[in-house]
Computed example of a mutant assay.
Amino acid sequence: MMRSGVAELPLHTGKVPPWLANRMRKLSKLVLKILVEEYGTKGLLERLADPVWFQAFNNLIGMDWDSSGSTTVTTGIIKEALAELDLGVMVAGGKGKSSRNTPNELEKIASKFELDPEPYVKTSRLVAKVDSVALQTGYQLYHHAFFLDEEGNWAVVQQGMNTELRLARRYHWFNEKPDVEELLNPHKGVAGVKREFALNTVDKDSKEVQKAIIEIAQEGRRVVRDLETIKALSKGYAVFYKPRDVDVREVVKRYESLGKIELNLKALEFAKELAIENYKEFLLIKGLGPGTLRALALVGELIYDVKPSWRDPVTHPIDPFKFAYAVGGKDRVPFRIEKGTYDELIRFLERLTETGNREILKRVKKISEKWKFPEEEKIPTF
């Protein structure tokens, strides 16, 4: 199992014009069909879970390389295309209200593929909780798409928004089975803009932190008093307890930079009543949001000296100029889309799928592997 990566994208507004959206659907259907014929449904999911490949596909159909809309539009186009094609892989969820309909759609898809929907619905919820609660970098999830094939392989593409930074961060997941055991050590390679710090309770060495957070959550009213003590210290009031060699104000400021520090007492009551000991089950508690986890982690750090990881899991930045544009970009960068060129590409791929001749694609692949984007043509769209 792996979580393949993360991509950072500026927030863009605007819509895809109908003439372009129609061509995107046609081209996507052809490319997806060829991919499944060549690599199977698992191969398609592995590629969708690769942030670089996903961005390249996004550029292929004419979307911007650096737009938050590249996630929502591209995922929506793929969802529509797979719904029309009978390739053995479908998509649940999407942007906003569609993301909240993921469980219902997953049940229908799993039923169609004769799979038990329960583990996939649970996985969908847990993946969303990991990237919004267990790992916090100041982004609020608003897009969640779950890809499932008839063999039980799955992938997730979800995106969070940071309105202050005007950036979106996209998260990619992949697994060959509906097993959630490895979901708490998800990072294999992460691409994006590295932040100074991130509250990371799923870092590779976070077992002690996870255990402490669960235990603190089950202390009931005591955790409320501990949090009040910390807030008093951060405001300069004298209290009976003071952590040694710690600048309380700076620590609290770091947590507050990610959002409000607040406790959902009902969620803590659930944790205590259920006697939860497993961090995965803990994250799935109804009402456990980012603010509550921040509060619990803060109490753990300042009262019990159990410090979470503050490592942003980004390992390398994405270079947008790795991507070639076949038909141009929606915002005319790096060049405007020519309808005639787009239509010719669609006709070419249609003929290719009809004849079944893939040799020409292999030749193009050899040529493109050594191609580099000309430095003088590197122009961002913002």
Rank of each mutant, 00 (worst) to 15 (best):
T315D: 15
R336S: 15
G300M: 02
K330T: 04
T341W: 09
D312S: 07
E301M: 08
T315V: 09
S309V: 00
L284H: 03
K286T: 10
P290I: 11
G289L: 06
I261A: 09
F270H: 08
L265V: 09
G289T: 03
L283W: 10
V306A: 04
F270D: 11
G329I: 05
L293P: 00
K322S: 13
E338R: 13
D305N: 11
A326E: 05
P320K: 01
P313F: 02
G340T: 12
F323M: 14
G289F: 07
I318S: 08
E281S: 05
R336N: 13
V327Y: 07
T341V: 13
F323Q: 08
E273I: 12
F335P: 07
L268Q: 02
K286G: 11
L293H: 00
L265C: 05
E277H: 13
R294E: 01
L284N: 01
F335V: 13
N278W: 07
L298T: 05
I318H: 12
A267Y: 11
L274A: 13
E338G: 09
L263N: 08
V333I: 10
S309A: 02
L302C: 00
S309F: 00
R332D: 15
F321Q: 03
G328K: 08
T315W: 04
E277M: 13
L293M: 03
Y304T: 01
D305P: 00
A271M: 10
L296E: 02
L274M: 13
N278E: 13
L283A: 07
I276H: 12
P313L: 04
N264T: 06
N264V: 05
A324F: 15
K330N: 02
N278I: 04
F270K: 11
V327S: 10
I276P: 09
N278G: 12
A271C: 10
R332I: 00
P317D: 08
A275I: 10
E277N: 14
L284W: 04
P320L: 03
E273K: 14
L293A: 02
K286H: 13
E273S: 12
K272S: 07
P317A: 15
Y325S: 11
R336G: 14
K286P: 06
L296I: 05
E262Q: 05
N278A: 04
S309M: 06
L263Q: 09
L298H: 06
Y279R: 01
K339M: 09
E262G: 00
P317S: 14
G291S: 15
K272Y: 08
L302R: 02
A295K: 02
V306W: 00
R336D: 14
I303S: 00
Y279N: 06
T341Y: 07
L302G: 04
K272F: 06
V299M: 06
K322G: 15
W310V: 09
V333C: 01
Y279D: 07
P334V: 10
G340R: 11
A297L: 05
L283V: 10
P317M: 11
L284M: 04
L302S: 01
K330F: 09
K339A: 14
L288C: 12
